[in-house]
């Protein structure tokens, strides 16, 4: 059945990705570890505002934090992105399978219909059918 925990973590991932600043932060971190101050530099916003974005990324486990002495080093974690992509791909596969099944169903009807008129067209076959 539905896994609430994984659903929640998917929510966090998608919420985290829903903001251009956060995506830019992830982009930067995918190139390598960085300090919070380094991450904040390219953005025209306060360190506090950037920290808020980082917290949302950490909640989604897209960003990891480690302490090196007095410094906080941040790094990118790919795992939640893989999980989100896999979830979406599974949904897509589900609908594709359903539409395949619909096509098979309609084709089966066509086959049944295309054999039936053949029998009807030859009067004998039709009579045979009736005599049963």
């Amino acid at each position: 059945m539905r896994d609430i925990a994984s659903q929640r973590s998917l929510d966090h991932t998608l919420i985290a990705l829903a903001d251009p600043t956060r995506r830019a932060i992830l982009q930067r971190l995918s190139e390598g570890e960085a300090r919070v101050t380094e991450l904040a530099q390219p953005f025209a916003m306060s360190l506090n505002a950037v920290s808020k974005h980082i917290r949302i990324l950490e909640r989604a486990r897209l960003v990891r934090r480690r302490r090196a002495g007095r410094e906080h080093r941040l790094s990118f974690n790919q795992g939640p992105l893989d999980a989100a992509a896999a979830w979406i791909e599974a949904r897509r596969a589900l609908w594709t399978a359903r539409l395949d099944a619909l096509d098979a169903l309609l084709c089966a009807e066509d086959c049944a219909a295309s054999t039936a008129p053949d029998k009807v067209s030859t009067g004998q076959t039709k009579k045979k059918g009736r005599s049963r």
């Binding site: 897509r92 609908w95 539409l99 096509d103 309609l106 066509d110």
Partner: peptide, 11 residues
């Protein structure tokens, strides 16, 4: 998310 699937049918 707009998950989109396209399929052709002969019907």
């Amino acid at each position: 998310i707009h998950l989109r699937v396209t399929r052709r049918f002969s019907a």
